[in-house]
């Protein structure tokens, strides 16, 4: 155990942590993209998928807590490494040495911080469903009848309405661009940090990093781009929009009241259910 602790306290061990958490986050990105690309199918497809996920709270919460832990380790290790790296050169050069290093590698911290800000917004936008930050209205009101006859969230309408807002689509695209930059360096470097690299594999790894980061960029950016250009879902969204219009909350400006009212409604509904039992 002691050797484990001293391993992960060393500079090399911290790079192992960055690489291992990076690989897990990369795998999550692939899975998340496959799930999201269902938006290009009929509305029932992604709505049923969302319904399936929500019917397995253990799976969903397990994945969420796991991801939180992984992201937490990735960021806290990065913070420690950044601090140590800055301390290692107290006096800067007059001529900044910028040769031999790719620009992606010099902007890992910046791209990482923007991606973090994006994750917070993305969770508030489509997971916590905070109204007032999406520029549309209260996504909790969007309901649909699933093919099985049950009532469920209209995730399809939510995503389409969400990305029809220009600044939301733009922020998502910018974040995807920076994720591409971050992965362009990170995917190649994680092999280096874990020791899987030699003169034979170095060019193959470089191709893999370029290919995988480009594929993820195209996949993820296609969703907000296609929706904003009204290539998919515009008619469905138009039909679903009326559900937002019946909002008693009035103007859709951000305020604590509008942010909290759906939570309160949910709580009272929950307690109502409890009481009924």
């Amino acid at each position: 155990m002691n050797s484990m602790i001293s391993f992960f306290k060393s500079s090399l061990g911290k790079k192992y942590l960055m690489a291992v958490t990076g690989i897990l986050l990369f795998l999550f990105l692939i899975g998340h993209l496959i799930g999201n690309l269902q938006i290009f199918g009929p509305p029932e497809l992604i709505n049923q998928y969302a319904h399936f996920l929500h019917s397995k709270p253990l799976l969903v919460w397990g994945a969420r807590l796991g991801l939180l832990l992984i992201v937490g380790i990735h960021i806290s290790t990065a913070a420690q490494l950044t601090r140590e790296n800055r301390q290692a050169r107290p006096v800067a050069y007059a001529v900044p040495p910028v040769y031999g290093s790719s620009w992606q590698s010099r902007y890992m911290l910046v791209s990482g911080l923007v991606i973090l800000a994006f994750i917070v917004y993305h969770l508030a936008h489509f997971t916590a469903l905070l109204p007032g930050i999406n520029g549309v209205g209260d996504f909790r009101r969007l309901e649909t009848t699933l093919p099985g006859g049950e009532k469920g969230r209209d995730v399809y309408a939510m995503v389409v309405l969400g990305f029809q807002v220009w600044w939301v689509a733009l922020f998502y695209l910018v974040a995807q661009g920076l994720l591409f930059v971050h992965l362009g360096h990170g995917l190649a470097s994680m092999f280096q940090s874990l020791g899987f690299r030699n003169h034979v594999w170095a060019p193959r790894i470089a191709w893999f990093a370029r290919g995988a980061s480009t594929a993820l960029l195209i996949g993820y950016a296609a969703i907000p781009a296609a929706i904003y250009l009204r290539l998919i879902g515009a008619s469905h969204a138009e039909k679903a929009k009326h559900q937002l219009a019946v909002s008693p909350a009035g103007p859709r400006m951000f305020s604590i009241q509008t942010a909290l009212s759906p939570l309160e409604a949910d709580l009272s509904a929950e307690t109502g259910k409890e009481a009924a039992k």
Partner: peptide, 16 residues
Amino acid sequence: DAEGFGACTVTGSCEA
């Protein structure tokens, strides 16, 4: 690590 060197960010400046 005890000497206070930083960690590797795989920028490649060293080999350059």
